[in-house]
Design a protein around this nucleic acid. Structure first.
Lengths: 126, 126
DNA sequence: CTAATTGCAAACGTTTTGCAGCGTT
DNA sequence: AACGCTGCAAAACGTTTGCAATTAG
């Protein structure tokens, strides 16, 4: 894998605090602020590549994929009120893996997805 | 909600043992064996409706949505070898909900998704 | 009768891909 | 020089939708 200004920028942006679990579209928008010519195709290509290299992680919710700089974070709360994706440090992977093994399966990736309301929304509404 | 031959058939098929976590496409193929004229759009419309009525459940994996007659089953193992979706009775929802509450969130739906190898594949390979 | 449901086909949102040329090594 | 990467545009994919005709209550 060679270097490219585009990919470096994309990785920086996904890793930045500014973007919270961005979609490819979000990344594209942010990228264009710094390098106007970058195409959406390039963003998709590079996000995919960075996931393959293990530099970032793809997170599935309803709708488009989201990307996460945190390679450990596989658990998320998807807020029904504001739509945000919030990291969820659950530490239940071992329990899931163990139960899966008991059922005769072998577990590689454990991914817990919660639909609900995030703390921010719960607080601002009351 | 009125009755229609098409919807009744679709519900029967999703509930049948013959189809295992079928996608809309799978359901369409099966439907056409009994009623050749049914359109894919009708299958999508009815699956969506049946989910809204709580008759069946939609399951997200990579790729297209899958449908499950089992309204409780929110946990699945997605086999990397054969691609099958296998129900996973984990009974960890309460633990997840509790942890989410500790973090200040409120959890509605808990959905655990495991990537791995199913027991069937583990046994047939050895 | 009326309103839900259908088949069809077109459109949608997201993602992938083929290609000729450009950039990095 | 070699080959990976780019922008562009077209296509793939899963899904939804508008419409006029049909069907169930």
């Amino acid at each position: 894998m060679r270097h490219s200004r585009q990919r470096d920028l994309i990785l920086d942006l996904v890793r930045s605090r500014a973007l919270n679990h961005p979609t490819a579209q979000d990344v594209h928008d942010a990228v264009r602020d710094h390098m106007p010519g970058v195409s959406l195709g390039t963003v998709y290509r590079n996000l995919h590549q960075l996931v393959e290299q293990g530099e970032i992680v793809a997170v599935q919710a309803e709708g488009p994929l989201h990307y996460d700089w945190n390679r450990q974070a596989h658990h998320h709360l998807h807020c029904s009120r504001c739509g945000a994706l919030v990291d969820l440090p659950l530490e239940l992977e071992d329990k899931v893996r163990e139960k899966a093994r008991h059922l005769g399966h072998s577990a590689d990736i454990v991914d817990i997805h919660v639909r609900g309301t995030c703390s921010r929304c719960l607080n601002t509404s009351t």
